[in-house]
Design a protein around this nucleic acid. Structure first.
Length: 419
RNA sequence: GGGGGAGUGUCCCGAGCGGCAAAGGGGGCGGACUGUAAAUCCGCUGGCUACGCCUUCGUAGGUUCGAGUCCUACCUCCCCCA
């Protein structure tokens, strides 16, 4: 791998963020000589980004940390088109309201990683609805569409594989790449953006933008992609025991977020420290060095706490670490575990275990699932395995702390609290 | 416009002579082993007021004691010919 002169590229490169760069020397020179504005696009398909997108946010973070200007582009306009899924079933397009709500909700997270403002390196959040929604179709075709060769678009892997797999590709989706290319050009014209970053799957789209820029007379533009991240065993990033690893605290508590990182596979620890924390490289090297055998668990805790601290703040991260310590290392309970409140009278009367685990707390999906889990010994009340699906949980099960601890498997715990 | 295929358990792929809650994978979940890891092994993987009941095989009808399986129409997709 080349050694870069610029702080930004050197940092990204040594931390493992770089997959491809369109013109490494040129871009390096650019970063070494001026303050560069670069962007990454995010689709507002959900009210929160999840761990899979964290790597992109970290790239913006480093961009700013090394003296440049990050732009997060929200796809308020492209969201209208929707990135059609592979399945048929013309998924309902999102309404404008949903898109706007999602964007508002996603915004909160960025301020944990970037500082916004008018300073030369102040981060910006831009919505491509700004120029896409009022686009005039005919004008657009004449100004932008004429620069695209269908022959060439058909030759892109993203399109080709789709056609070869005999899966339909709607015109809508076909246009998505044009809009994204156009975004790059608009950002370049309006805000002086020079670089677009993204996951490696975005390479073709980004390069399209560069080409369009050439034809439409922008400055030289650049592309930088990050590797597609999977865990060492091949799973996609961003799935936890209970679903997606959302970044918004109201969708996934800091404790659960911490747990996700705590459970990192051994083989991923060093890589994740580089990608998802801002610990200095020599510090990471030291940690990786002492992380042999079971000692690696200590390093995983550091990883979890550092990642959580960046997102939710140091205090929340340490609270999560403490909760985990009490729960797992002392086998006790901590008031900070996820808690479900229940009317005291109801508990007094006694509630069936099935109902408690399924309806009341949602730890398992249904009564049937609860029954199956009991059969295989997966449910516990106050750390005692449930063996009878007709058993009931009542006020007698309250611990001295005044709660009932319910566990599903070894890692999922909920406290039942009478009110 | 003509001809030929396909749509299965809403995570995915994928079998299915008219008796099917539907084979088999993958994934996921639980258990054992460990270190809250990986690998490995075992079990589970429609719902319920549960020895019974209800809802599932593109949609809507029909034939049958009985249909994922047969017939009709429709929808969507793919391939070949024009």
């Amino acid at each position: 791998m080349t050694t870069f002169r610029s702080d930004f590229l050197r940092t990204l490169s040594e931390r493992g963020f770089v997959h491809q760069i369109s013109d490494p020397e040129g871009l390096d020179t650019l970063f070494a000589t001026e303050t560069v504005t670069a962007y990454i696009g995010f689709d507002p398909t959900a009210p929160s980004l999840h761990a899979g997108g964290l790597i992109q946010i970290m790239m913006l973070h480093w961009l700013q940390a090394t003296g440049h200007r990050p732009v997060s582009l929200m796809g308020g306009g492209t969201g209208m088109v929707g990135d059609p899924s592979f399945k048929e079933e013309a998924r309902k397009l999102m309404t404008v309201e949903t898109i706007e709500e999602n964007i508002a909700s996603i915004k909160q997270v960025f301020s944990s990683y970037l500082s916004y403002g008018d300073a030369p390196t102040g981060a910006m959040m831009i919505n491509n609805a700004e120029w896409l929604r009022d686009l005039n179709y005919l004008e657009f075709l004449r100004d932008v569409g004429r620069h695209f060769s269908v022959n060439r678009m058909l030759s892109f892997d993203s399109v080709k594989t789709r056609l070869e797999r005999e899966q339909s590709l709607s015109f809508l989706e076909f246009n998505y790449m044009i809009l994204q290319a156009y975004d790059f050009v608009e950002l370049s014209k309006r805000y002086g953006v020079r670089l677009q970053m993204g996951g490696s799957d975005q390479w073709g789209n980004i390069v399209n933008g560069i080409d369009l820029g050439h034809r439409m007379g922008t400055q030289q533009l650049y592309a930088l992609t990050s590797p597609l991240l999977t865990t060492a065993s091949g799973a996609k990033m961003g799935k936890s025991l209970s679903g997606a690893v959302w970044l918004n605290a109201d969708m996934l508590s800091p404790y659960e977020f911490w747990q996700y990182w705590r459970n990192t596979e051994d083989a991923d620890v060093e890589r994740f420290l580089k990608l998802y924390t801002t610990l200095p490289m020599d510090e990471i090297a030291r940690l990786a060095d002492e992380a042999k055998g079971a000692a690696i668990n200590e390093v995983k805790k550091i990883l979890a706490t550092e990642v959580t601290a960046m997102l939710h703040g140091r205090a929340a991260a340490e609270a999560a670490a403490e909760t985990a310590r009490k729960t797992f290392e002392e086998g006790g309970l901590s008031a900070d575990l996820p808690t479900v409140e229940i009317p005291a009278a109801e508990l007094e009367a006694g509630i069936g275990v099935l109902s408690v685990f399924a309806e009341k707390t949602g730890l398992v999906a249904s009564n049937g699932e609860a029954r199956r889990q009991i059969k295989s010994g997966g449910l516990k009340v106050n750390d005692a395995t449930v063996t009878d699906d007709k058993a009931a949980v009542s006020a007698r099960d309250l611990t001295p702390e005044g709660v009932v601890k319910l566990s599903f498997g070894k890692k999922k715990h909920v406290l039942l609290k009478p009110v």
